[in-house]
Design a protein around this nucleic acid. Sequence first.
RNA 1: GCCGGAGUGGCGGAACCUGGCAGACGCGAUGGAUUCAAAAUCCAUUGUCCGCAAGGGCGUGCGGGUUCAAAUCCCGCCUCCGGCACCA
Length: 821
Amino acid sequence: MERDYDHIAIEERWMKDWIDNKVWSMPETPRKEKRYTVTMYPYPSGDMHMGHVEIFTIHDAIARYYRMRGYDVLSPIGFDSFGLPAENAAIQRGLDPKEWTYANIEKLYSSAQRIGCSFDWDRKIATSDPEYYKWNQWFFLKFYERGLAYRKAAAANWCPNDKTVLANEQVVAGKCERCGAEVTKVFMTQWFFKVTDYADRLLDDMPLNTGWNERLKTLQVNWIGRSFGAEVEFDVEGADPITVYTTRPDTLWGATFFVMAPELPLAEELVKGTGKEQELTDFKNQVAKLTEIDRTSTERPKKGMFLGRYAINPVNGEKIPIWVADYVLMDYGTGAIMAVPAHDQRDLDFARQYDLPVRVVIQPPDRELDEDTMTEAYVGPGTMVNSGPFDGTSVDESVKKVTDWLASEGRGRHAKNFRLRDWLVSRQRYWGTPIPIVFCDDCGEVPVPYEELPLVLPENVDFTPTGEASPLATATDWVNVACPKCGKPARRETDTMDTFVDSSWYFHRYTDPHNTEIPFERAKSDAWMPMDQYTGGIEHAVLHLIYARFFQKVLVDMGMARDPEPFPNLLNQGLITMGGKRMSKSRGNIVEPQEAFQRFGADSLRLFMLFSGPPEANFDWPEEGVDAIGPVAYDWLKRVWRLCEENRDGFDGGGTEAGPAEETLRKDLHRTIKVVTADYEAFSFNTAIARLHELVNQAYRYRSGGGTNQQVLDEVIEVLLKLLAPIAPYLAEEQWHRLGHETSIHFEPWPEHDPQLATEEEVTMVVQVNGKVRDTILVPADVTEAKMTELALASEKVQGFLNGEPKKVIVKPPKLVSLVA
RNA sequence: GCCGGAGUGGCGGAACCUGGCAGACGCGAUGGAUUCAAAAUCCAUUGUCCGCAAGGGCGUGCGGGUUCAAAUCCCGCCUCCGGCACCA
């Protein structure tokens, strides 16, 4: 038999064996306690890169560990195959997105198999399959029926490069999340999902996500951005009252002017008859020219215009001028604000710019504010002044008191607001799920009947985005259709859905991937959900991870799901970089997985990655590239391999008798089982590997000391292979079979440590004098406090630092005696 | 500005939750064994300063505090990373 560690032969053999025998396939529902582990499914936008390898490796080690712990583990895989990444890549290469996508999917599946991923290959999904996206359309119609999908004309984020609108979440620092182009605003009629209806639940259920890290939770909480305050009604001279939202109703007496967003239709109405109509139009044009980045920059001086009309401050009857200004956002609150320059920096900046009055209504405890000269708004603690009946009220209770009073007067009410906006789901792109709506001149928006689903994406369409209309608009055969309601000629919606719709429920589909009647059967979903472990990048913090939570809550309301939260345990793997930069072809800092497989094997690559640090930590790949895997991972696997092979040769007469050396080795082994298991439980693979290094070192030390006891060495090696199996599955499987086993190591029960053996009999006791270690003494584990003190005081080294009797003695059995001189 | 996270040898990292020998494990480096030689392998040393040694001093971003004892807990800073940011 082959003696050398021939990683290629071994890995290819077992890869085929596992796939051919469908060893990872799960029944429809678990037969015993389950673990449902999912890794965020990738985009098929190219061949496998190290980011995939990392996330697959982490996920797979977890799945394999749970499997050996005796759980039924569902570990599925699929592809997020619709969307911009695939489509753009296809366009660049002049290919059809479909061909390009499916070719990549095949490549990526085979790379995933090469890594050794133990996915259930019978449950593969691709969201660009009509069998999948049919259900996106089905959900869209259900949402529509529930009033959760609606169309409205609104200013939307427009990516001039990708030529489509984007959701708020897909604009990062004013730029397109996908391509980095600077986003502009465009006024369009678009489809939205009503996430804001679920904003409270998204926040209030957050504590259920016990396995999320602080960073991620904060990101989402900030993004949803709930604030509490009040709505206050202002009368307007010669017009209907206007409501504003404020978090500081207690500063109402300091409201010296009124501001609204220029785009607000109300501004247009108010300006009528003032002679300033043209001025407003010009101002609006000026504002519209600003990019989103400029518009929201706090550096830029604020610009405004007086509308020539007045509002009445409800608390004191004062006439205050109504302005429009570019610093007020149209889509937050009511798009109009009361301006309190003394206690809001933006209002103060604006007041100084246009010479508007400033009135202090909160008096700081420690100084006087000067209304005429102050340049910093005061937002700290204090008491109300110039506020009529409320003078003297502390700010601790002022908001509540004033709001209660406004409510009793019928001029306001308690209110809250969210930073979160409704989810814009329309995309003017080809490669996505067609939105199942027909527009009829007589009937308006008409849903495509369920029995006509899937509404298949037409082929042979010029899919190049033009920015004018969706590419689907050019497919006239497809667009022109009889109205489902009245039968008259009508037109289909030509926008497609944001692909984040696809990914909002795919983890349910995995539980029932071939269902042709409904998206998934609740009994099957309930059997596996909630997900026990989700693995994926933090870049989805306010994208997928909010959308999917929203979807889950809607599913619950629809009676389709049980759990309020879909994935309470989430591991955010770190980023892989090289030289601190993302790996990319253009930078030339790519480490090719295929090269690593060839030279060192998947096991070495997996081991290398997991040993590099905790899975959550970013990993800067060493500059040697693939070479780095050799000394760190490959050489050690060879060392393990040699240990196994040498042992398999056997020893004359079964080797040495069991004695103290064997006893020590067995103790090491059982302590290793104990700590390695704890490491696996915490996904602390790097320390688990370190412990396995130590075990192997111990075994070598035993051998070089002349130890040849077959029985003990067999035990050590069998356990070692099991403990290593989730990390280096191929080598473990190969050596397991070489030991004569017929069945897979990956379904072997996880080793149990013998508590007797794992317990230390002797421990090193530390003796400190004044907090410094002065001696270490070997003592029995069950040593008494009295004996410890006696030994400590008897130590010559210790005596050198004591002047006679210690003032104080602290004993923590069995490891520490601390003396105070 | 607000909210999070992090700062430990030449390097990746361990110990932080639960205060108790800082630097596990690995890389690299140095020395040695083996070899005609190299690779591979094996053994040893490797925080830093003083010292021939025994031994001792210092040491976890900075400054304080709590404690017999602080990388670990508390307070105040600094730096880096990430997010949000004219959200009223």
